[in-house]
Design a protein around this nucleic acid. Structure first.
Length: 247
RNA sequence: GGGAGCAUUACCAUCAA
């Protein structure tokens, strides 16, 4: 995040590749300085796809889909990153139709693009569509769900309250050793609790080797929403007893 | 043969609206 040093090095360079331009532009974007980023982008002599992608994603994260779309349409060549950024943006703005249109028409997809579309349905509370795409990912693509896919899909299953699907994910997680991710574990505990399977939630919790705060939170909340207030309080005390800081 | 720039999950909890 040290933009003044980055700029200094950049200014001292004899030759600047498109990689150095793009790295600097993205630095300004991530530092929240869009106007400087845009100024550099406009100055950049030969803008390649990655440079356009950085600017598109900057607009996307601000929710400015009109500007993002203008660049997307204007750029000479679009790659899978360009499409995935746009899909992410449309999903975040609630325009699932436009997102899906891009997803269906993009020349090639990777796991990022699948995850973006699946996550989009989840966050717009369309768990059934999310699950349909999740199955399609496994049946009709060369990719396998990863920890990101699982963390996206579990809240959708929790919304539906159907733990049979959750059980399938649970076994998948164990088979693929995805339970080394705290986010995956947290999402599993949460899912079982929201499906009313509090014993299963506890059992998943107990199997977790390294319990970070969010895992404790998930089970404490799970006990609470299942009417087990006393157990929730006990677990909270146990957590403090073990030296885990409540947040 | 190797390497540098861009996209997807973190809501699980709390607080705020």
């Amino acid at each position: 995040g040290n933009m003044s040093s980055a700029k200094k090095v950049f200014d001292e360079m004899i030759e600047r590749s498109s990689v150095s331009w793009t790295a600097l532009i993205d630095g300004y974007v991530k530092a929240g300085n869009l106007s400087v980023a845009k100024g550099l982008f406009d100055l950049m002599p030969e803008k390649d796809t990655a440079a356009y992608n950085v600017m598109i994603d900057a607009y996307v994260k601000l929710g400015w889909m009109g500007l993002a779309r203008s660049l997307f349409d204007a750029m000479p060549e679009r790659n899978v990153v360009s499409y995935t950024s746009m899909i992410d943006g449309y999903c975040s703005s609630g325009d699932l139709g436009e997102a899906r249109l891009l997803f269906d028409t993009m020349p090639e997809r990777n796991l990022f693009s699948w995850n973006a579309m699946i996550g989009g349905y989840c966050q717009n509370v369309q768990p059934q569509e999310a699950l349909r795409l999740f199955h399609e990912l496994q049946a009709q693509s060369n990719f396998e769900p990863d920890d990101v896919t699982v963390v996206s899909i579990l809240p959708a299953i929790a919304d539906l309250g159907t733990s049979e699907l959750g059980n399938w994910i649970y076994h998948y997680v164990r088979r693929k050793k995805l339970d080394s991710s705290s986010n995956v574990c947290t999402a599993l505990v949460d899912m079982y609790a929201k499906c009313g399977e509090i014993e299963k939630a506890k059992s998943v919790f107990n199997d977790i080797k390294v319990k970070v705060t969010s895992v404790w939170n998930a089970l404490i909340n799970g006990l609470a929403i299942n009417g087990l207030a006393e157990e929730a309080l006990e677990l909270f005390l146990e957590m403090k007893h073990q030296g885990i800081e409540p947040n």
